[in-house]
């Protein structure tokens, strides 16, 4: 348990660090939003001063930072000037959508990667291994922009899939089953594009970890005992290879979050990506900061989950 507590403390510290970093970005940016507001003849100078006071912009940096952290912890992530609304409600549903997309892609890529990696490791040098090698090399060389655009073009030409959004306009009037089907259809392409990006890396690591285990003496002994092949691979070898893969789990989440940003924009998935892009174009700083903080929270949480999984999977950590 001490290990988990340590990892948790570490995660909190990292998040604090990230908050300092984003806060500094916010502060050091040339000209705050209110400077721009001053130029707006419709807003009186008093209003600007009042707002500056409210956001604590007149105080020293550490004080401003503490006030800011306090308000963030209360769920007040600032105000979106472009939407003329508080940031958090705006962000909440978008973040959920990003999370859905990333998690589905995460599951899909791992479910594809594990059997592929295990089998190509088991039949090292066989045709499947060769095909996996060629396939991962090609996928690795395909930029995710291209994958997303290609899938979108495919959807346009075949008309099998919708070309954007999360649901059809008519979704409200559909029955439950039809609505689920509609959602899955909308999800399919962005999730595929996202998963295709990380899949080759995952497959290679699964294969590599499996080969390391398969060459180890205890697996050779197990083979000598005549344990059937499939059972040997999935019950004996895979758990032994799990350690590096669990660490990889956290990293893959980071890559997926990064990747989803672009894919959401290309495929008009209503997640954080399009919101963040628009916020940058419109200099909506609080939205930017909040989105970045949220992404860090996701990633840190993902890494923490990986740590916990590692703790569960590896008895050696528990002893230490």
């Amino acid at each position: 348990m001490r290990y988990i507590a340590q990892r948790f403390a570490h995660a909190i510290l990292v998040l604090l660090g990230v908050s300092v970093l984003t806060f500094l970005l916010l502060e050091l940016a040339p000209g705050d939003y209110f400077a721009g507001m001053r130029l707006n003849p419709q807003i009186s100078a008093q209003t600007v001063t009042r707002l500056r006071d409210a956001y604590g912009l007149n105080r020293s940096l550490p004080v401003t930072y503490l006030r800011w952290v306090g308000s963030v912890l209360r769920g007040d992530l600032g105000y979106s000037f472009a939407y003329n609304a508080p940031v958090w409600p705006l962000l909440k549903s978008r973040a959920g959508n990003t999370l859905i997309l990333s998690l589905i892609a995460l599951l899909a890529s791992w479910f594809a990667a594990i059997p592929l990696g295990v089998w190509s490791a088991a039949r090292r040098g066989g045709w499947l291994d060769g095909a996996t090698s060629a396939g991962t090399t090609l996928l690795l060389a395909l930029p995710d922009v291209l994958i997303a655009l290609g899938l979108l073009a495919f959807a346009l030409h075949t008309g099998w899939f919708p070309t954007g959004g999360m649901a059809s306009i008519a979704a409200q009037e559909m029955g439950a089953a039809a609505r689920v089907r509609d959602f899955v259809l909308h999800l399919a392409l962005p999730a595929t594009a996202l998963a295709a990006g990380v899949l080759p890396i995952l497959v290679r690591h699964v294969r590599s970890a499996m080969l390391d285990v398969l060459d180890s003496p205890h697996l050779r002994a197990a083979r000598g005992h005549g344990i059937p092949r499939t059972r040997l691979l999935f019950r004996h070898a895979l758990p032994a290879a799990a350690n590096p893969l669990i660490s990889l789990f956290g990293l893959s989440l980071g890559t997926l979050l990064s990747g989803s940003l672009l894919i959401e924009v290309v495929m008009s998935w209503p997640g954080l990506g399009p919101l963040l892009l628009q916020a940058i174009l419109e200099r909506d700083v609080y939205v930017v900061v909040a989105a970045v903080l949220l992404s860090a929270l996701f990633l840190v949480a993902g890494n923490f989950i990986a740590d916990v999984l590692l703790y569960v999977a590896d008895p050696r950590i528990r002893v230490e």
Binding site: V20, L25, L28, S258, L261, I280, R283, V289, V292, V300
Partner: peptide, 25 residues
């Protein structure tokens, strides 16, 4: 190293976007 950890705690492209957001468009 703590600094590096903080930089790596952000999904890379979000970090890029965050920095880009505060520079002239």
């Amino acid at each position: 190293m703590r600094g590096a950890e903080i930089f790596m705690a952000l999904p890379w492209i979000y970090l890029l976007f965050a920095v880009r957001a505060f520079l002239p468009l």
